[in-house]
Simulated scan of single mutants.
Amino acid sequence: MNAIDNAVWDAALARLLDDVYAFARTGPRSHDDWGRDVLNVMDRSVTDPRGWRTLEWQIDKAGRKSARPPYPFLPLTAQQVHTWTFPVTACAAAELLASLTQEWFFEARLVRARADRDDVLADACSVLSRFGADADFRTSSDLARTSASPDFLAGELAGGRAFTDHVMDLGLIAVSADEVGVFWSFNAN
Rank of each mutant, 00 (worst) to 15 (best):
L170Q: 08
A124V: 03
V127D: 00
Q79C: 02
L121D: 08
A22F: 11
L143E: 10
A3T: 15
I59P: 03
A133D: 14
V8M: 13
V180R: 00
T83A: 14
K65L: 14
M168H: 14
A7Q: 15
G27H: 06
A11H: 14
V127S: 01
A11M: 07
A135P: 02
V180Q: 02
N189S: 15
L39H: 08
D151L: 09
A144W: 07
D37L: 04
A158T: 09
L110C: 11
D43L: 09
R50T: 04
S140H: 07
R25P: 03
W84C: 06
G35L: 08
T47V: 11
D134I: 00
A113I: 01
R64D: 02
R64H: 07
V175E: 05
T26G: 15
Q80E: 15
D60P: 00
F23D: 06
L121A: 12
F23Q: 02
T26Y: 01
F86C: 00
A177P: 01
A135W: 01
I173T: 01
V120H: 03
P69W: 02
S30P: 00
A174T: 07
G132L: 09
D48S: 12
A90K: 07
Q58V: 11
E179W: 00
G160D: 06
V81E: 02
R161C: 07
D10T: 15
